[in-house]
Design a protein around this nucleic acid. Structure first.
Lengths: 234, 234
DNA sequence: CGCTTTATCGTCAGTACGACGAGAAACAAG
DNA sequence: CTTGTTTCTCGTCGTACTGACGATAAAGCG
């Protein structure tokens, strides 16, 4: 039995919503392999560094954002032989859902870090297409039974903002009135701040902040996910 | 930046239901560290071997079971420095939900492989307590919105068998009549075989097989998971 | 001041679910 | 063979939740 030693990296699927579209932070690779191609940000895990800590460090390095902003979780691990032509590399992917950052990609050490629409992100380096797809699918599913849509929002937001998150991530249109009822009556989903704002036009909207709930009971299900979906393992 | 090379292993959380309790396959360790303690089965990933393939191989080696039996998925990855006193070891954990195997632990190469109740499995080697807990929690959650409870059942089973799976894994009691309605009317959950069997006493029950659905719409929610649950990340 | 736009509240019917009654079909005991 | 017990299966009822959609409130615009 061969004992496998491998390089261990973390890759980040950083999702946010900008200009009404779901966007992911990508880096233009400056070196081979895949030079000039877009890739997910990531890097090697240090000796004596926890996986979560490595991912959090990369997040800070790439975006200057504190991991406590938004939501952060381990996604999955990818280690198919040959996924990196330089040798055996096992990567632990992390998924983050972040609000639209005012100072985007500030302290980034990677040259060409950029928010790019997920819909136009095919053709990434390595197996990052797959990792991104898995991350997006995870985010879609989590919106159903958790209040994590608020992770895409700033500290204070309106019901319409929150609805926009669902509509963007799910690529659906939701009824504003039913959504409003669901969100405001669900226990611990959002809490009113008392303030209100006027956006563009129309009646001013109440501002809310995140509530304490970690799960939605009952969940907020997607309209009709087609008669059957493919196996959602991994 | 230190480039981290690590040994990569796979660990298996193999769950089944035996004698009305949720059980996990454990191995009595014959060598240091943690000699004599129970641990999850697992082993090193071979060179040029995919992670999924390594997990499937271990499953076959430990149980003689084909991975297509039951359900099999990646759970999470654990790589905290010091989790293995021998050096940096990153382990990719896999979760399997298996029917009660007629020939249990047959081709097992590990000396003392044994099915043991999850409830009595505290004090495992390494961080396996945590991995097991994560696996059980994942299984509990998946029963809600997937038809994977059938993975614990043999090819043909009764509604009562299936209800037993839910009751055992959730440690709850469900109303037999409501459960029967839910299962038989949910699209693609189960399909009648036409046969029926008499178990101990009582009216004979219809036999079913797994249906084609991968998701339950709407889900089968647990009664009342306490007012609030802790963060369920990782 | 109407008109448009957005936010919020309300209504109504259909679906799903929890609680529970009742019949059907087996076995065991008398 | 009858009665009782057990388990499976079908129904009923009230409540909760959801989807469709009408109506009102409160802003900006011309």
């Amino acid at each position: 039995m061969t004992l496998c030693m491998a390089a261990v990296t973390v890759d980040l699927v950083l999702l946010t919503i900008r200009q009404g579209t779901l966007q992911v932070l990508l880096i233009r690779r400056g070196i081979e392999p895949y030079r000039g191609r877009w890739a997910l940000p990531g890097g090697f895990v240090h000796d004596d560094e926890d996986l979560d800590a490595a991912a959090a460090r990369e997040l800070r390095e790439e975006t200057g954002v504190d991991p406590s902003t938004g939501h952060f979780e381990q996604l999955a691990t990818y280690g198919t032989p040959g996924r990196d032509p330089r040798g055996r590399v096992v990567t632990v992917a992390y998924l983050a859902m972040l609000p639209d950052l005012p100072a985007p990609v500030a302290g980034s050490d990677a040259a060409g870090a950029e928010w790019r629409p997920v819909a136009e992100s095919a053709g990434l380096a390595f197996d990052h297409d797959r990792i991104l797809a898995d991350g997006v699918e995870r985010a879609r599913a989590k919106l159903e039974y958790t209040p994590l849509a608020t992770a895409f929002c700033p500290p204070e937001f309106t019901v319409a903002d929150l609805r926009g998150v669902y509509e963007t991530v799910w690529r659906t249109r939701l009824d504003a009135r039913n959504f409003h009822r669901k969100v405001t009556t669900a226990e611990g989903f959002v809490e009113p701040t008392g303030h209100s704002v006027t956006r563009d036009r129309g009646r001013p909207a109440q501002l809310f902040r995140r509530g304490p709930a970690r799960l939605l009971h009952p969940p907020l299900l997607r309209p009709a996910p087609a008669p059957d979906r493919s196996g959602s393992d991994r």
